[in-house]
Write a protein that binds this DNA or RNA. Sequence first.
DNA 1: GTCGATAATGACAATGATTGTCAAAAGCGC
DNA 2: GCGCTTTTGACAATCATTGTCATTATCGAC
Lengths: 138, 138
Amino acid sequence: MNPTVPSETGAPRNTKQRSAVSAVLAETEGFHSAQDLHAMLRDRGERVGLTTVYRTLQGLADAGEIDVMRPPGGEHLYRRCSQGHHHHLVCRSCGRTVEVAGPAVESWADKVAGQHGFVDVSHTMEIFGTCPECAAKS
Amino acid sequence: MNPTVPSETGAPRNTKQRSAVSAVLAETEGFHSAQDLHAMLRDRGERVGLTTVYRTLQGLADAGEIDVMRPPGGEHLYRRCSQGHHHHLVCRSCGRTVEVAGPAVESWADKVAGQHGFVDVSHTMEIFGTCPECAAKS
DNA sequence: GTCGATAATGACAATGATTGTCAAAAGCGC
DNA sequence: GCGCTTTTGACAATCATTGTCATTATCGAC
């Protein structure tokens, strides 16, 4: 083939940095910002540039291996999630996150989009609330 | 009463700027960024500062009079919406927006959150796709 | 209508996450 | 091992959004 055209079959190279980012995501719970992850990597002694963390996270997100959430706070949060499609229930006080599956929502979104002729449909959903513990405190 | 304690009953003042922002929102279709709206106001000859546009939009959003969407692009988009709760179906190519109501989704979100003990529940949902016209073009 | 207290405004600077750039270094196929 | 190609990483640039604070307009009472 033509080496100057990697096309879509080009598998990403296995680098230490990519592995390190994946490892941190695999061993941590909950959502973390890119800068969080960068700090964690430094604490572990891994030398990974912040730029690389961002790019690696984007790549993983594109590959569907991690999940991205954009909370009102403004930072992107990344998390290693179960592979299947699902949604998140987030405590707006302590940040605790629960994964929830909603097949009904998936089919509803597809149906509604189809009714309007839309194709190639995706959707995002986030549920915010106050978890029992935080509610008890206040 | 005690003027030094506005408490929570203090209604926002009616200023020209607030009216102007509301007017633009009322007369335009679709979502617009804060900077978009600022430009529109300038074209109309209204003298409104960008800072004020941001603050007014935040206020209107808090009051539930407008809707905020945070697309992957990064900018906040604001829109005058029907008052009731609803969701949006957005064409990721041309930006065309359709309002959709989904009572099933509302109740599902509440139910799921309740099952986990969450209270004071809200949620956001956005559906992205390619509208018929854009799909035909490509 | 006028006055005074108070909140809103607006120009500008500051913030801060994310992205672009490009030389240097590493990975993969042969 | 070699060479090409991708990835990395330090730094700068970008850009929306927010903070600051003196000035101004609004509201409510008189």
